[in-house]
Design a protein around this nucleic acid. Structure first.
Lengths: 232, 232
DNA sequence: ACCTGAACACCGTTCAAGT
DNA sequence: ACCTGAACACCGTTCAAGT
């Protein structure tokens, strides 16, 4: 397995935004730009999934010739990196700045992170495979700072951050890929019932049929936080 | 995103193992069989990664004509499903059957699960995307039974199972994809130092340079288990 | 500086045909 | 029952060429 590269570099070192006719976009098609490419890529990924992003289709959607993208991005991997980072931006709602409630703040951050990824179900699967972009680093920085402020010892800080990372990543990837149709759900239930002699515990607990993903995420997160920094 | 199918069905309903010349394999190439295909697929995936599995190459490695596989498997997705399940088998070491130590037993199960997936780094990324095969269901059943025996309330059982699942999946996917070369590592360190004004906390804690993956996994797991079922 | 089509080297899968 | 090669419909990317 090759070591991952960032891949986000483009042939141009800086984006010159000076438009030829300021304040007036040409009718019909705007010129190609990194911003437009990334926005379109996110739309396409939302609609078609990770395997559904094709360079030709992306160019088509932008009204550009099939191969024009390669002047801007260099690579399909670069498109993935840019789309992923675009989706991970954190807009901290300034009204909910909980003052001393570090636990509530952490829960808010992680629920926001998960919700953002679920709005783009391809993103969670992609995140661990790619180099960490600026937006995810910002989230980790804020998470670490909050944990530290909350009194987590420096010696435990990395473990605490990675534990929460693991939990959020695992939960979100699982949930994003578990979008069963009603037929699938019925079939799974039937199959599990057929096999209840082999798997009595998870059949009895209805593990695969429980549909309260948000509640389970929140409860498990509470358990983990209890272990990381017990409430007094 | 399409609902996932099992895809593991083949055109033949049962494998007839009756060999024409019993006890004597023909010289040169053994005949094609599901077992040989799966074993070769695992080898190929180990060597080349998820993107490196090509149907033609797999057939080649088996000494078969390029398209012979399709009589046995029907699909490339079926190959993935079979290879994944093959890798998830749990051989419980009968000597280490800890009697009353449910916590040790759970830790052993989950560390074994993680270690098995890290031996096949493509497997962790694949697992949440596919339907759950018999071997992973067995692991979940055993996990649930052990937690239940340990006194976890029925109302909390699903949350406990999914929390541990999330943690193991997230940790293993992250670790399997974080195989940096020394050059990459040096570059990452340099980049983080350059940006230390933006990410002071994670720079100070050396979050991305900490190399003790096994220790961090174990410590975080301890925290989570503390939250799930506090030691008395 | 920015865009383009033709062309190359691949893929997974189908199918008619072999034994 | 089991295997095969030719062929189809795609892909990502390169490149020489346009403006």
């Amino acid at each position: 397995m090759a070591a991952k590269r960032s891949g986000a570099e483009s042939k141009q070192s800086r984006r010159t935004v000076a438009s030829p006719r300021p304040g007036q976009e040409p009718r019909g098609e705007a010129p190609l730009s990194l911003e437009r490419i990334v926005a379109s890529a996110v739309e396409l990924l939302d609609a078609e999934g990770l395997d559904g992003l094709k360079m030709r289709q992306l160019a088509d959607r932008l009204g550009a010739g099939a191969m024009s993208l390669y002047w801007h991005v260099g690579n399909k991997e670069a498109v993935f990196d840019l789309a992923l980072d675009a989706v991970l931006e954190y807009r901290r709602s300034p009204e909910i700045v909980a003052p001393q409630d570090w636990r509530g703040e952490i829960i808010h951050m992680l629920e926001d992170w998960r919700a953002g990824m679920l709005r783009h179900p391809w993103s969670a699967s992609l995140l661990p495979r790619r180099a960490l972009g600026p937006n995810i680093l910002s989230r980790l920085e804020l998470l670490g700072k909050t944990l530290s402020k909350a009194g987590v010892a420096d010696a435990d800080l990395n473990v605490a951050i990675w534990s929460l990372w693991n939990y959020v990543i695992g939960a979100t990837i699982t949930r994003a890929n578990f979008e069963l149709s009603d037929d699938d759900r019925a079939a799974a239930q039937q199959r599990l019932t057929d096999l209840s002699q082999h798997y009595p515990t998870i059949e009895r607990s209805r593990l695969l049929l429980d549909n309260d993903w948000d509640g389970a995420f929140r409860k498990g997160l509470d358990f983990l936080l209890d272990g990381l920094a017990p409430r007094e």
